[in-house]
Nucleic acid binder design. Sequence first.
DNA 1: GCCGTTTTCGGCCCGACTGTTTTCAGTCG
Length: 571
Amino acid sequence: MKNLELAQIFSQMADLLDMKKEDTFFKSRAYRKAARVLESLEKDVGEIYREGGLEALQKIPGIGQGLASKIEEFIKTGQIKAEQKLKKESPVDLDSLTSVEGLGPRKIKALYKKLKIRNLNDLEKAAQDNKISKLEGFGEKSEKNILQSIAFVKTGKGRFLLGLILPIVRQIVSHLDKLPQVGKVSLAGSIRRMKETVGDIDILVTSSKPEKVMNFFVQMPEVIKVWAKGPTKSSIRLKGGFDGDLRVIKKQSFGAALQYFTGNKDHNILTRRLAQQKGLKLNEYGVWRGKKRITGRTEKKVYQSIGLPYIEPELRTNTGEIEAALAGQLPEIIGYDEIKGDCHCHTDWSDGMQSIEEMARAAQKMGYQYLVITDHTKDLRVTNGLDEKKLLRQMEEIDKINSRFKRIRILRGCEANIRADGAIDIKDEVLSKLDIVVAAVHSKYKMPKKEMTQRIIQAMENPNVDIIGHPTGRRIFQREACQLDFDQIFKAAKRTKTALEINAQPERLDLRDVNIRKAIKAGVKLVISSDAHYQGSLSLIELGIAQARRGWAAKKDILNSQSLKDFLKSF
DNA sequence: GCCGTTTTCGGCCCGACTGTTTTCAGTCG
């Protein structure tokens, strides 16, 4: 799948163009638009090109002659000359500098011209020496923000979004699975725990012919570097910039190895201690009494042998799961197949890519009983947000479309905007006509804790508001969560019967796992939503379910695990 | 660079926010 790679290249080219010249506004915007379209394209451009050539590429909206031939070049040669040229001519490391919030191509250009800032290090130094605040167009606050943002970017270094890595890794796993020399295959490590960000990936296989498996692994087309290659372990770097390990395990040790390589460090220390207390030894090869291996083939048996029930991978972080397991109080966390409908998605009425009908058909395919259409509302002009009149028209449209669907019900909703004072941007008389109202913050994320908390509580007080969308507004690696007094938020949510969302977008995953756990403890109900802007991203719901599982959520805590009737009743 | 014509040029989404200014540029979504 070349779409994401190309999207990245085009948006980089847009930035490079903006830096280079003054009058590239519309050209760079065309590149950015093309990047956006590619990002959300269902079909692989490689496939489109194979089937219909340049002509088919030009049928993609936002792609014309110029960009189509660049895509062709990329498919054929793996690179785009124009991009290489732009990069060569650019004196700065634009990629890392644009990751600093508030810095775009223009400001980066100014910083280079006046202070010769080429990369993050230069930038940090200049900010520390108070050189930036003295520049025209910058000030003390800019300088402070730059330093803060650099620190934030640094914490994310070397980690990657689960949602980005998972599809790539799954493909590798499925290739390995097809090799005749491979028996069992499993992911391990943080990616098996479905942690929201992943450092490197671990894959375990059983095989009687490790050498052939290793040969295949280090020669995959995605590999850009081989760190190590041996009979039991090989390490590589993949195109995306992240590293992967493959370990070959004997059949009789597979369960023990999985257990060993999945839990975080502290979980493993505790399980080994439990083994010790029983006069056993637990390592990656099995559970041992003296020199005798008593088990190790499956994880379940490993846990059993040390007196524990099977613990789901998502829980293995030593945050109380072992104590709960010993006490028989481990929750039965929600399953990946237990969501019955999606509560948050967009269509081409606002900034989505597909029609209501197309989204509904895709949701039906996923086996859902319902899909809530929640397009943006009027405050968000950039997303073509709907005003009261358009919302009413959309409701009529949904009613019409519903008559064409038998197995799924399309629910009428919106993602309304919570203004700075907590007011909703749509009149109550229209809100009250909707089946479900999601309300969310889209501006002024830096408000002080007290005001931000009050703002959201104010929104929850509106009897028409059913769900608070992406409650903290965070974007992993990009924007910190807003400041909230969660105790107060949870209290108000419970009192007003407002559900909080677990948004499944890879860079949001908002609420976080710890807050999900706290919310459940406080008696707050939750929903898991894809926030899909096109059909394909409905399946992102999996990441939200993983997040819920890491937050110890059971089926009963998640409102959209209920049937349509019960779901509607709970608001 | 794309797109759709008043069809090979001329327009292209635009408001909020921020940090800087004192009327605005750049960034973000």
